[in-house]
Design a protein around this nucleic acid. Structure first.
Lengths: 135, 135
DNA sequence: CCGCATCCGGCTTGATACTG
DNA sequence: CAGTATCAAGCCGGATGCGG
């Protein structure tokens, strides 16, 4: 119930704090896509078809500034740029997994009346484990 | 890994789906504030100081349209208007609790170098229980 | 092709004032 | 108390361009 101070501002909940630190339509989704392994700009674009180059670029920069991702330059010809989650972002995985699971569950709640709703089973253990693999 | 269909649109993850269904800066925070019990417009405004009347009104309306909250008019003089979570929103509580917990943990990760960071213990059991109380 | 930068139009949010 | 109305600022999408 106590208030939280962060960057000299007061918040009434962790959610409000998160809203300040991770504001942006795509940040959660980008982090989610980087859980299994670091990815390149073009891989992220492929995995998130509805994002534009512009927004991907902007949000990656903000995520890097706030220390949620790290930009890793792999030498070579041509050099390769990977985006990789930091420890700070990795700690967010349980929360993102829960959100992901809830998002998927919404489908069952309002499947089209013409279709036969199947009893879908959600299995997040694979995602949860990849979290610990990376540590 | 499979794609999800919702409202005739395809999404690559539950997070992207959520982004469509619950878009808006304040929706998570409003739901979070309604977990313990239904609240009135003015209560919500008090609990979320940085929201404006306008945004609270807009997002409550959208949350109602998407069936995450219910507007309950309690007869009396003057009549009282409560906003109450639906079952659909109640199922979101574990995810919101995890996010809330993560948001609070960010404070410890970058507390000012002049201060002595205390080993804060997070305890979410109270929040989790209020979820079941309401069912 | 890759990883952006720039410009523009539209949608989302904020500030303030006002109503029944 | 429970919102609306109006206007301004900021964020996002789309198109285009550009050096490597």
């Amino acid at each position: 119930m106590s208030d939280i101070k962060y960057n000299n501002k007061w918040f009434k909940s962790g959610l409000e704090l998160l809203n300040e630190v991770l504001y942006g339509k795509w940040k959660f989704i980008i982090i989610w896509n980087l859980i299994d392994k670091p990815l390149r700009f073009s891989d992220l674009r492929k995995n998130i078809p509805s994002i534009t180059d512009r927004m991907l670029s902007l949000q990656l920069k903000e995520l890097e500034e706030e220390n949620f991702i790290e930009r890793v330059v792999v030498e070579g010809n041509p050099p390769k740029i990977d985006y990789k989650l930091t420890a700070k972002a990795l700690e967010m995985i349980p929360a993102l997994s829960a959100l992901e699971s809830y998002g998927r569950s919404l489908v069952d709640l309002k499947s089209a009346p013409t279709e036969q709703p199947k009893p879908a089973t959600l299995n997040l253990s694979a995602d949860e484990e990849s979290f610990f693999d990376q540590l």
